[in-house]
Write a protein that binds this DNA or RNA. Structure first.
Lengths: 337, 337
DNA sequence: CTGTTAGCGCTTTCAC
DNA sequence: GTGAAAGCGCTAACAG
């Protein structure tokens, strides 16, 4: 059925070894033979078998990408960036999604899924357990994280503390003093520290400004709109005065808070300022002020580094901080009064 | 470095063939030997080489998934569903994203990316060109589309015409007579008919109700929020009276229209009703009335069928219509007056 | 129930 | 510059 390298060799009247060299652009092949081989291969519609060359070389030209979800803003865009550079370099992208099972027994990622199957692994914003990390390092394939720090391997991400601080400084600069917070990452996310970093920056900024951190002005979500609504409800329903501003751990949560505020007739930004982190696709249309980051670029940068490492550039994968930027839109203004 | 089947065979004092049978759960192996092999394999940390077995069997236990984007609602969720059933069945998911290059020369999907690499291909809501379709069918691997009809292969999707009609009937039932439309798919999407089907249903419903289809009440977008805003602006800015309702080709566009309406002080649903299709994650929080579909289920269903087909159940992949449902929330009401 | 023996299709020394 | 031949690790007859 499939035409093999032998067919090409026969047709071109050369050995399989020569066909192999010619097709891969290796030296030690005369231009005449190379041309001949190329034309015969094209004519026959020859496509090399990845399994065969994988077996022979030990490399699969496939990169694994491990994600907690594919249907969430950050991951979708990061994967898109990764896919693009992989494609440009003739690499395949093997996707492993935990589908939300960030922890627990339903979580099904194991070393065996990866062994002898991929040349390197990109881990997206994921807290790997000690055991998983151990297994992964044991496979000895290059590893790189994207979207947040992961112990034991380098990563590509923004300085979450600084980003959150920039958001807080914006609010503080506007004159807000009663600032609430929708935090991300409800529970134990193991080694994944992003939500905690952002929340820590909130507390630090408040204290630095000499402001009180009121527990009833902090609510936890999981980075989604739905949870943003839930967290906002919790804060809005709390007895006592409301904050004049909300710093949200993600744009989705910020948007959720905006929806809930609108539902209650709380005017934004007149009565309440809202700022998020991400610059989600919905943020510009909704007029949300945010700290923008570009997961697509993160993916590209990470994949590029990993490819360089595979190409032999030892040390090509290093921790690298990506830029972020405050984008002021219409959800923030000085506090009322 | 890697421990091979021979190592296991040696340690277990059996032949490689026996190890192979034992590990794959084939018959004709005594329980005693099977147990022995299993324990030795575990002890040695043996993991079979996909390349080797792929070479030997001609099957890779990998399914390809071709998508126009991974960072869009429908696709992200569909991929999640696909990934899950693949994982449950020991299959790998090789992702091919066109990254938005739905057409044009930057589009890089070719037969060679697929040949000898995957056992089957899932094509997500994508209009393949005649040439691509020809190449794909030429590879003779099972094909199945998800999210919309693709000529030449079966598919899993909702009846878009009926879904759009349900949305229109809701509006009509509420008493609306001036209904505008945000259509999807701006330009030539080749063989991808979903946007056109929805728009056709709009026209048909209008005519059936004896209502005028006004060109200035129809604006085209590309299914995204940003385009929804743009299209809404176009309609809102048109001279003459405004429609009292908007039927949008996707929830993202509907949400964009809602943002724009809010910006202009057009009250929803008092002055304007908006209905979409999808039940996007943002729809419930935003209170958008919509026709809900479940891409995650579509993905699961499609992957399951393809796997069955691969397992030998000829004809397992057939056209199958998935359910949809009107979800009434707070963006629709009877027209003013 | 188990072992032997060919490959699967490609890469890679090592000769020539 | 080119060819011969030995694998890479596993599966699949075919014997026994």
């Amino acid at each position: 059925m499939g035409v093999s390298i032998d067919d090409v060799a026969a047709q071109a009247h050369v050995s399989t070894a020569t066909v192999s060299r010619a097709l891969r652009g290796l030296p030690r092949v005369s231009e005449a033979t190379r041309a001949k081989v190329l034309s015969v291969a094209a004519e026959l519609g020859y496509v090399p078998s990845p399994s065969a060359s994988g077996l022979a070389t030990g490399r699969t030209r496939t990169m694994g990408v491990l994600v907690p979800f594919v249907d969430r803003w950050y991951f979708g865009h990061a994967i898109e960036g990764i896919d693009q550079v992989l494609r440009e370099n003739g690499y395949n992208l093997l996707l492993f999604s935990l589908g939300g099972y960030v922890h627990g027994q339903k979580r099904s990622f194991t070393e065996s899924m990866v062994r002898k199957q991929i040349d390197a692994l990109l881990v997206l914003s994921l807290g790997l357990s000690e055991e998983e990390l151990r297994q992964l390092h044991h496979t000895e394939i290059p590893l790189l994280s994207v979207g947040g720090p992961v112990v034991g391997c380098s990563g590509v991400y923004i300085d979450d503390g600084a980003a959150a601080t920039a958001a807080m400084d914006h609010l503080l600069g506007l004159g807000h003093r009663r600032i609430g917070h929708l935090s991300g990452g409800v529970q134990d996310e193991r080694n994944f520290k992003v939500p905690a970093l952002r929340t820590l920056a909130y507390r630090t900024a408040m204290e630095r400004a000499g402001l009180e951190v009121r527990p009833d002005w902090i609510a936890a979500g999981d980075f989604t709109v739905a949870e943003g609504v839930r967290a906002a409800v919790q804060i809005f329903d709390a007895p006592g005065e409301l904050p004049t501003a909300l710093f949200c751990g993600s744009d989705e949560m910020a948007l959720g808070a905006m929806f809930e505020a609108q539902r209650r007739g709380i005017r934004i930004p007149e009565e309440l300022s809202v700022v998020g982190i991400d610059d989600h696709d919905f943020s510009a249309p909704a007029g949300l002020t945010t700290i923008a980051q570009k997961p697509w670029h993160h993916g590209r940068a990470a994949a590029t580094m990993l490819l360089a490492e595979l190409a032999g550039a030892t040390g090509a994968t290093r921790d690298t901080l990506m830029p972020f930027e405050l984008v002021v839109r219409h959800s923030t203004a000085p506090p009322p009064g």
